[in-house]
């Protein structure tokens, strides 16, 4: 896709703006985006009883940040559904279950923005072998860790990561980690 402003360079910065329900999308090259200084507003939608957060097109607006798009691979394509990462960004939806594996790295920041650094707990499809638990058993040769042990280890890891973030003066990341640690410890997120 060519830049909608200059029509010469390939567009690699995507904006989506929701103005009173009217959604406008814009695809620009890095140069035009920088000169236009376009601002981006998170997309919101509303609907009926079903129009709950299940339907909110948060993904597209989160993905549509220049940094992530620039860093994304333009060549890689999902073997199951044929999507490129760029298509996921412009469509605001993941193409198939395989995409989560193929574009794991590219999707990780988006997942973290939406959900923090949480890991799934809850129902597991019957017959599914929980690799995480099994790997631990294999590696440690000991019984499966309790949830409390896993939580404690995660908090320690997050604390280390927070210290590193402070060292490199990445205070935004450090604050995110602090909130996550507090959340895991049962405390409240700071405002």
């Amino acid at each position: 896709m060519l830049c909608q402003k200059c029509g010469i360079n390939t567009a690699n910065v995507f904006y989506k703006q929701n103005n009173n329900g009217k959604v406008t999308e814009l695809a620009l090259c890095s140069e035009c985006a920088a000169s236009a200084g376009a601002s981006r507003t998170a997309a919101t939608q509303s609907g009926g009883f079903f129009g709950d957060p299940f339907g909110i097109d948060l993904f597209s607006s989160l993905l549509g940040t220049p940094v992530q798009v620039r860093g994304a691979s333009t060549e890689k394509v999902c073997p199951l559904c044929g999507s490129s990462y760029r298509e996921l960004v412009s469509g605001g939806k993941v193409g198939c279950a395989k995409c989560y594996e193929v574009f794991k790295e590219e999707l990780a920041p988006t997942v973290a923005k939406i959900h923090g650094r949480s890991r799934h707990v809850g129902r597991i499809p019957s017959g599914y072998v929980n690799d995480y638990v099994n790997d631990n058993e294999k590696i440690l040769g000991s019984p499966v860790k309790t949830e409390e042990q896993i939580l404690k280890e995660r908090i320690t890891a997050l604390n280390n990561e927070q210290k590193k973030a402070v060292e490199v003066q990445n205070y935004e990341r450090a604050a995110e980690l602090r909130d996550e640690i507090r959340r895991l410890e049962g405390g409240k997120e700071s405002n």
Binding site: D57, I114, H120, R123, P125, S126, Y128, D131
Partner: peptide, 29 residues
Amino acid sequence: NNALDIAYDAELGFLTSCPTNLGIAMRAS
């Protein structure tokens, strides 16, 4: 779950079209 190959990942939970629903992919209201 018994009859179909349901898309699931140990870390991300149930895999969904929109990443906002990952995990339990449940909306209770």
